[in-house]
């Protein structure tokens, strides 16, 4: 049994007629990138908010944030995705679910569900990183901020968060990478991102190796680009004379 390699397959016209198979790959890549970036914005915003809440005095708010984290950390991403995509539109009150199903085209429905799902899922992880960053700061920093007359929100804004975020750039980098990798899960609801395009190409061309090698290579490239970018961020935000100790 010998495999017939055919790298030219990418340049031949795709079954859809309006594009080449290379075009499929690139459109998948584009969806993956768009999806991951928009989910990352949600994850950062929500995760930072929750991370701050986990460190504020008062059991009520920090307990709320802790519950949030436990829920999103202890259910598989795939199950969460299916719940966002299949369950939520059915059970949303006030006809919101029906509007979601009727007013949005299927591709948008898939994209929105995937984006929200990845965003919330990752926010729970971002929350834990932000919390550990804040807790890693010397306790006196908060006191110093308060002693100068800052309110608690001002102390977070000017003293604690700028330093905490610098400390957690490396773990956030790995969460950022994860969001790209996790986005592949969204192929299961039919969203035509990179991995799904790869599978579709296999179905149409019977050239699985070329397709999978190309998809894998594209994920590797994303990985390298993100790491380079984040290393740049890390260098940009480095504090002179600060070695990360206490």
């Amino acid at each position: 049994m010998s495999y017939q390699w055919n790298w030219g397959i990418f340049l031949s016209p795709a079954a859809s007629g309006d594009s080449t198979y290379l075009g499929w790959m690139l459109s998948g890549l584009q969806t993956t990138i768009l999806l991951s970036l928009s989910a990352w914005v949600i994850a950062l915003a929500l995760g930072s908010l929750m991370g701050v809440l986990r460190t504020v005095p008062g059991k009520w708010l920090s307990g709320l944030a802790a519950t949030y984290v436990e829920i999103f950390r202890n259910i598989p991403l795939l199950v969460q995705l299916f719940i966002w995509y299949f369950v939520l539109p059915e059970v949303l009150p006030f006809g919101l679910g029906d509007r979601f199903k009727q007013d949005l085209d299927p591709v948008t429905q898939q994209f929105v569900s995937a984006m929200v799902c990845l965003g919330f899922f990752t926010s729970a992880r971002v929350c834990e990183q932000v919390r550990s960053g804040i807790n890693a700061l010397p306790r006196g920093q908060k006191n110093a901020g308060l002693a100068l007359g800052f309110t608690l929100p001002q102390t977070y804004r000017h003293v604690l968060l700028p330093m905490a975020f610098r400390l957690v750039v490396p773990p956030l980098t790995s969460e950022f990478l994860n969001i790209f990798k996790n986005s592949a899960v969204c192929s299961t609801i039919g969203l035509l991102e990179l991995a799904a395009q790869g599978r579709q190409l296999v179905d149409y061309t019977a050239q699985p190796y070329e397709s999978f090698i190309a998809v894998t290579a594209l994920y590797l490239i994303i990985n390298v680009v993100v790491m380079t970018l984040m290393r740049h961020v890390e260098n940009k935000t480095r504090v002179p004379g600060y070695l990360g100790g206490k």
């Binding site: 006196g140 006191n143 110093a144 002693a147 600060y242």
Partner: peptide, 11 residues
């Protein structure tokens, strides 16, 4: 107030 560990803001 002046603290034992200075608590200047490192960033």
């Amino acid at each position: 107030m002046v603290f034992q560990h200075f608590e200047l803001f490192p960033h």
